[in-house]
Simulated assay, not measured.
Amino acid sequence: MKENQVRVPLGKKVKAAFKVDDFLFNFPKNLDFKKIREIRIIPRNNCFYVEWVYKF
């Protein structure tokens, strides 16, 4: 996490195909970064949704 953004690196095949190294997402202010365990990126309806999975 850097400046309230989370960097998600991409694999070599994605980098080669799309010429993109990573994604940057704004981190929600209502969540605690230390409790996040997983980030899910879900394509749906021509959009991408981010699910933040965290430990209670």
Rank of each mutant, 00 (worst) to 15 (best):
M1Y: 15
M1E: 09
M1T: 13
M1K: 15
M1F: 14
K2E: 08
K2G: 08
E3Q: 15
E3C: 13
E3R: 14
E3V: 10
N4L: 07
N4H: 15
Q5I: 04
V6W: 05
V6D: 03
V6H: 07
R7P: 00
R7W: 04
V8M: 05
V8L: 08
P9V: 03
P9E: 09
G11D: 11
K12C: 09
K12S: 09
K12M: 14
K13F: 08
K13P: 01
V14S: 09
V14A: 10
V14W: 02
V14D: 10
V14M: 08
K15Q: 06
K15V: 07
A16G: 09
A16Q: 12
A17L: 15
A17V: 13
A17N: 10
F18S: 09
F18Y: 10
F18R: 04
K19Y: 02
K19L: 00
V20W: 12
V20I: 15
D21A: 11
D22F: 14
D22Y: 15
F23N: 04
F23S: 05
L24M: 12
L24H: 14
F25D: 10
F25W: 12
N26Y: 14
N26E: 11
F27R: 12
F27D: 02
F27T: 05
F27K: 11
P28R: 04
P28S: 08
P28L: 00
K29I: 03
K29C: 00
K29T: 03
K29N: 13
D32F: 04
F33C: 06
F33M: 15
F33A: 15
F33W: 12
F33V: 13
I36M: 14
I36T: 13
I36S: 08
R37G: 10
I39L: 07
I39W: 06
R40H: 05
R40I: 07
R40V: 02
I41N: 09
I41T: 08
I41W: 05
I41R: 02
P43C: 02
P43Y: 04
R44C: 10
N45R: 13
N46G: 15
N46I: 01
C47S: 11
C47T: 11
F48K: 06
Y49L: 00
Y49F: 07
Y49A: 03
V50G: 03
V50T: 07
V50P: 01
V50L: 12
V50H: 05
E51M: 07
E51V: 06
E51C: 05
E51G: 00
V53Y: 01
Y54S: 15
Y54E: 14
K55P: 06
F56R: 12
F56A: 06
